[in-house]
Write a protein that binds this DNA or RNA. Sequence first.
DNA 1: TTTATGACCTGAG
DNA 2: ACTCAGGCCATAA
Length: 107
Amino acid sequence: MSQLPNLFSQLVYDLVARIPEGRVITYGRIARSIGYPNNARRVGNAMRHTPDDLFLPTWRVVNAEGRTAPGWDDQRRLLELEGVPFNEKGRVDLNHCLWSPDEDDNR
DNA sequence: TTTATGACCTGAG
DNA sequence: ACTCAGGCCATAA
């Protein structure tokens, strides 16, 4: 019943919470950044089960090709509202919108 | 216990 | 640029 998050999920959620508006990050980069380099799929799974009461910007997480989550068409619209551009193939331009956590190492 | 599945990634061709 | 196999790991069946 209660889905209390393990350490891995906590690290993922804490990072997702920091993604700035108008920027995106990939599953694989999240995994690397929190010290689990081979766990991109796990990140995706964590995203799929993100508790609603955390109000995380999960729409700012895309895959390494800049594609949005399968079956979640509104994700594109949400990103576009923030000014994230999509190319003609329906993918975000990672070279321009990809966010790196080290970018604001004000820890 | 084994097999299939998933909001994934990378390298080869 | 695209397809595909192989790798990855937790979870569901």
